[in-house]
Amino acid sequence: MKVLVSTKVLSEITEKIEKGDWKPGEKLPSLSALASEFSISVSTLREVMRILEEKGYVLIEHGRGMFVRAQSYWRSDDMFELSGLPIGNMTSLLEFRNLLEPEMARLAAERGSTGQIRLIKDAASRMIANIEKGEDYFEADIAFHEYIAEACANEIMAKVMKDISDLLLESRRNTIRIPGSAQRASHFHMLIALAIEQRNPQMAKDMMSFHLNDVKQDFLRLRELDAMKDGMEEELP
């Protein structure tokens, strides 16, 4: 009987999201509030929300709550995949990001909902806080860029950013070797978030371009360091 109840609630919540009763970026009521609304136990509802997260309908952030995701994330396995791209090709990734992300920041400033913009700024703040505490900030870093993509109101852009998230993560794991890289990135994230919050499309676009140029400089430094390391190893007897 529990399976039937959970299936029914899963269908009802899915329908509410698809109909737009809850907008992308909107924070959902708490588990206890939703459990009361649908007359089911919290444990059953938790399982329902886990399924919805797997299907791409919601994003669950521990300590912050549950948020509705953009339609581009729904049943995303049916769309094209970019996950097969070579992880090591960071030069190609940077070229691609420079073509896409500044325009995405501009569109987010023009089209993003209040809820979506709040998520962008929260991710920027979370990255700064985690860096200061010496904690893992990668999730907040990637989420920041994905939230901007969702705020564009362009499902193809959002899908593309989601599909290259592994490449973005690998990029960040490389540049962390450069002292101050994470701090500079978090600073640019906040400047971008503030420009989007102020509905300043050109400023958001420019700040994203500056951010990506800074990332490019980090990769140039990495190449120099790797070249020096290779040279030293060749000189060893």
Score class of each variant (00 low, 15 high):
198 Q>V: 04
172 R>E: 08
146 E>M: 03
108 A>F: 02
197 E>S: 08
148 I>R: 08
96 F>Y: 11
163 D>Y: 00
144 F>H: 07
131 I>T: 07
107 L>S: 14
196 I>M: 00
188 F>Q: 07
199 R>A: 10
187 H>T: 10
130 N>V: 08
160 V>A: 00
153 A>D: 14
133 K>I: 07
103 E>R: 15
158 A>M: 04
134 G>L: 08
95 E>S: 12
183 Q>G: 05
168 L>R: 05
149 A>C: 01
125 S>C: 05
155 E>A: 00
155 E>L: 10
147 Y>A: 10
121 K>V: 12
140 A>K: 13
144 F>E: 06
139 E>P: 02
154 N>K: 01
192 I>H: 03
98 N>E: 00
112 G>V: 05
165 S>H: 01
113 S>P: 09
104 M>A: 01
102 P>I: 01
103 E>W: 11
123 A>C: 09
186 S>C: 11
149 A>I: 01
146 E>G: 11
101 E>T: 07
158 A>I: 01
116 Q>L: 03
194 L>Q: 14
178 I>H: 01
176 I>F: 00
117 I>R: 13
149 A>E: 03
141 D>H: 15
129 A>Y: 14
196 I>W: 03
142 I>K: 14
108 A>N: 09
121 K>S: 07
189 H>Q: 00
109 A>G: 04
143 A>R: 15
138 F>T: 07
108 A>R: 03
200 N>K: 13
131 I>M: 14
132 E>F: 09
172 R>G: 06
126 R>A: 11
134 G>P: 06
96 F>Q: 02
160 V>Q: 00
155 E>S: 13
137 Y>D: 08
170 E>S: 06
198 Q>L: 12
156 I>L: 04
118 R>E: 11
188 F>H: 13
124 A>C: 06
130 N>F: 07
119 L>H: 06
125 S>K: 15
197 E>N: 02
120 I>W: 12
110 E>T: 12
131 I>R: 09
94 L>R: 10
187 H>G: 02
114 T>P: 04
103 E>H: 15
98 N>W: 07
134 G>S: 11
156 I>T: 14
109 A>M: 03
142 I>F: 07
113 S>A: 11
104 M>G: 09
128 I>Q: 14
122 D>P: 03
153 A>K: 15
157 M>H: 07
179 P>K: 13
187 H>A: 10
153 A>C: 11
144 F>P: 03
114 T>V: 07
120 I>N: 09
106 R>Y: 15
129 A>G: 13
171 S>D: 04
148 I>E: 06
111 R>W: 03
182 A>C: 08
119 L>S: 13
114 T>F: 15
121 K>P: 03
136 D>C: 10
175 T>F: 03
174 N>Q: 10
127 M>V: 04
187 H>F: 05
173 R>I: 00
110 E>Q: 08
97 R>N: 04
181 S>Y: 08
178 I>Y: 09
